[in-house]
Design a protein around this nucleic acid. Structure first.
Length: 481
RNA sequence: CGGGGUGUAGCGCAGUUUGGUAGCGCAUCUGGUUUGGGACCAGAGGGUCGCGGGUUCAAAUCCUGCCACCCCGACCA
């Protein structure tokens, strides 16, 4: 190994030293994005967009499976519409961007760039819905929204992000509730089975719920640095918006009713979650199901007769098995350069093939997640590689889950919580009386928040460790992005 | 809003104290040799030195006004 090679690892900031710096380093070096001239707006480059496309494909399939259809509503929302639901406008007004001019004319009513689309969608729903026979409305849209955040970080918090937002209407509260939980379940599936990120599912507290919601449900992931990331939310909006927007229909008994309403969304923030949950000092590690390139083939001494032919043959064999393969036969770079490049980009499996291998009817196969390298016969290489991809997917999830367990602990007092949050941040499990005063106290004392009231409740005691009153729930507390 | 810092090639920086032809590393391009963990040699291209004003024979360098970004603090949530 040359001196330069040894120094390579140092080019990416060591994760243990400075997680935030590591995160931006990795994003910069892996060609996912570029920064636009307007602060807080990102350019998604092909490799970054491909990640989003794969997430879209997975979700779109699951949405269709559950009877949903895609629609599109406009970018601009009149101010009067935004103002119709009181809690909603109070929650979003501080971070809304406004359009005040069209051409040279000042607009009579300014238009907001959607921070989310409940209002415009409800406005349209109120015109469409007439009868219970049309229900449920099961619509989803793929769009971008703008929220004028003060502090921005790529993928995790910026001023424009791509997302999907589902907006459904139902006859009964129960049906809306079932929809809310069903969609949260799909988000959990996306996170755990597709992105290999374990999540806690549960309900948000009153304080943390979506502006205008009856109740908000969330999937919460834990990052390497012990901070939680809200990765997807599903809201039961009950009749809050349908009353405010006067959406009505005639029910089975000929009576006028307001329908029940849900909305749910995940965004490109998930890409940030993948980077933080799986990466290491060499860069990204992508779970095989998400990876735009699942296998990269690096030919050695590609000028020698037969090498590229064999490499192409190998590519065809793997592609026939449904694997996403890239053969990098560029002449500009050495094999060593390519090894490092694709490791940095997180490609799950690398296959090396050179004259020596061809002579022995073998190839060298390297795993990105463990960095293990092994020789396999070419005879059943498609079976080997596709099996390996499945193994990596599962191993990555298990490893991430172990990491999370290591950073999850139970606390029995505010002092203990504070001490833990300062010395070894992570998920703190504790009991809670349900009062806002105790919730505020947590935030005041250590800038941590109640992440959720998990569905999987554990009995950690009878009293709230903050006020001493009777405990109602077990909660997860953490610092958050 | 207050304090501190930084603006020089695509990226990272030196040069500013003491004014005198605009530099280095990486990246890019050409040609050749290479190829099992970021190859080597030779050559080439690329700059209104953040913007404006001033001093001077001469300004990246000195003076001055402004702008942008980063860090710390306050404010806000």
């Amino acid at each position: 190994m040359s001196k330069e090679n040894k120094d390579f690892v140092k080019e990416i900031t060591k994760m243990e030293d400075d997680f935030a710096q590591w995160y931006t380093d990795v994003i910069r070096k892996t060609d996912l994005i570029d920064y636009s001239p307007v602060k807080g707006f990102l350019v998604l480059k092909p490799y970054g967009y491909a990640l989003w496309e794969n997430i879209q494909k997975f979700l779109d399939g699951r949405f269709k499976d559950t009877g949903h259809e895609n629609v599109y509503f406009p970018l601009l929302i009149p101010e009067s519409l935004l103002n119709k639901e009181k809690e909603h406008v109070e929650g979003f007004a501080p971070e809304v961007a406004w359009v005040t001019h069209g051409g040279n004319e000042e607009l009579a009513e300014r238009l907001c760039i959607r921070p989310t689309s409940e209002t415009i969608i409800c406005e349209m729903y109120s015109k469409w819905l007439k009868s219970y026979r049309e229900l449920p409305y099961l619509y989803n849209q793929w769009a971008s929204v703008v929220r004028w955040e003060k502090e921005t970080r790529p993928f995790l918090r910026h001023r424009e992000f791509l997302w999907q937002e589902g907006h459904t209407l139902h006859e009964t509260y129960e049906e809306a509730q079932n929809e809310t939980l069903q969609m949260l379940g799909i988000y959990r599936e996306l996170s755990e089975e597709f992105l290999a990120i374990p999540v806690i599912t549960g309900k948000k507290s009153e304080k943390e719920k979506f502006a205008g919601a009856e109740s908000t449900y969330t999937i919460e992931a834990l990052m390497h640095d012990g901070k939680a990331l809200q990765s997807g939310t599903s809201h039961n909006l009950s009749q809050h918006f349908t009353k405010a927007f006067d959406i009505t229909y005639l029910d089975r008994n000929g009576k006028l009713q307001h329908p029940y309403h849900t909305s749910w969304g995940v965004s490109t923030r998930l890409i940030g979650a993948v980077i933080m949950a799986h990466g290491d000092n060499r860069g990204l590690i992508l779970p095989p199901r998400l990876a735009p390139i699942q296998v990269v083939i690096v030919p050695i001494m590609q000028k020698k007769a037969g090498v590229l032919e064999k490499a192409n043959e190998l590519k065809n064999i793997l592609e026939a098995k449904g694997i996403r393969v890239k053969l990098d036969d560029s002449k500009n770079y050495s094999p060593g350069w390519k090894f490092n490049e694709y490791e940095m980009k997180g490609v799950p499996v690398r296959v090396e093939i050179g004259p020596r291998d061809i002579q022995n009817n073998v190839v060298m196969v390297a795993r990105r997640d463990t960095l293990e390298k092994e020789t396999y016969s070419l005879d059943n290489i498609d079976e080997i590689v596709s099996g390996l991809l499945d193994t990596i997917q599962v191993d990555m999830f298990n490893k991430a889950k172990e990491e999370r367990e290591k950073k999850t602990f139970t606390v029995n007092s505010l002092e203990e919580l504070k001490e833990k949050m300062e010395t070894s941040p992570g998920f703190a499990k504790m009991m809670w009386c349900g009062d806002k005063e105790c919730e505020d106290k947590i935030k005041e004392e250590m800038s941590a928040t109640i992440r959720c009231i998990p569905f999987e409740q554990e009995d950690l005691g009878d009293t709230c460790p903050i006020c001493g009153k009777k405990a109602k729930h077990m909660i997860y507390v953490a610092k958050a992005y």
